[in-house]
């Protein structure tokens, strides 16, 4: 026997988000049912499913915007407080987790009273304690990266939807997150602006950013995803490589869903 052989358990991927038997309800409506999902460092996981299936709720749970009642959710090794924990505080723990998790919303949610530059620089200044000068220099670099350096001093209402979403991505990146969550980032965009946002996301994937993406852009999902998760009525029905899910779905439901979204 070779002495340096490593046991299988320790070479398992470096898990950044660990979800185990997670359950969440809004009142009597059971949104997430026994979700099990591990996301490895550097992995791109795309979550698909019909609207109302719970996919947004799932990724919003990863930075604590949604609370869960039972199960376990760890991010970066920190345990996400449950709903019961948060009754008695827990905002501080949450903030610790959130520092490592970036989130991009469907509606961009840029701060309307700040320029693009300030939108990107504010969190590093107030949360990480960077000096305004270094935060702004870094913000300019990030805006350059998303192709908006020339728009740094514009206010959100002077930018197109696609530009706003790219500023929002830069704003999340400014906190140097370990993982980025995208909640339908292109759903509120005019069709001609979808490409510019997807391009930025492609770039992130290439650089090895860990990402969880909820999207209806199936072509994009097939291209960038390491794994695709299909959620149906709050349950993970299938997980697999894009080829497995898109070309050889095992469940009838997945097949129906895909035939509906891929027809156009």
């Amino acid at each position: 026997m070779n002495a340096i052989q490593v046991p299988a358990a320790t070479i398992s991927r470096d898990v950044i988000v660990g979800i185990a038997r997670l359950n969440k309800s809004f009142g009597t409506f059971h949104v997430l049912k026994d979700i099990d999902l591990d996301v490895g460092r550097g992995e791109v996981v795309v979550i698909i499913g019909a609207s109302g299936s719970g996919k947004s709720t799932l990724i919003r749970g990863v930075n604590g915007l949604e609370m869960y009642q039972s199960g376990r959710l760890t991010v970066d090794g920190f345990d996400m407080p449950t709903e019961a924990d948060r009754e008695i505080g827990g905002e501080r723990e949450l903030a610790r987790i959130r520092k490592g998790v970036g989130m991009v919303f469907q509606q961009f949610n840029l701060f309307p009273h700040m320029s693009a530059l300030d939108n990107v620089a504010i969190a590093p200044i107030r949360v990480r304690g960077h000096t305004p000068d270094e935060a702004k220099a870094n913000a300019l670099r990030l805006l350059e990266r998303v192709g908006l350096r020339d728009h740094a001093h514009k206010f959100p209402d002077q930018l197109s939807g696609g530009q706003q979403q790219r500023v929002a991505i830069a704003r999340s990146l400014a906190m140097a997150p370990h993982i980025m969550l995208f909640d339908e980032p292109t759903s509120a965009l005019d069709p001609e602006m979808v490409g510019e946002v997807l391009d930025v996301m492609r770039g992130l994937a290439r650089e090895g950013m860990t990402m969880m993406i909820v999207t209806h852009e199936m072509g994009f999902a097939r291209e960038v995803a390491d794994r695709v998760v299909y959620i149906d009525h709050g349950r993970i029905l299938e997980i697999g490589t894009p080829a497995e899910i898109f070309d050889r779905p095992t469940h009838e439901r997945t097949r129906t869903f895909l035939s509906r979204v891929l027809r156009h």
């Binding site: 949450l94 959130r98 701060f111 906190m175």
Partner: peptide, 23 residues
Amino acid sequence: VPKGQIEAARSLAMSSWTLNVDI
């Protein structure tokens, strides 16, 4: 103030103080 503003601020790990004062 839209709820999305608060969610965006929270997702950037802002404390309640910063969230109220700056956003």
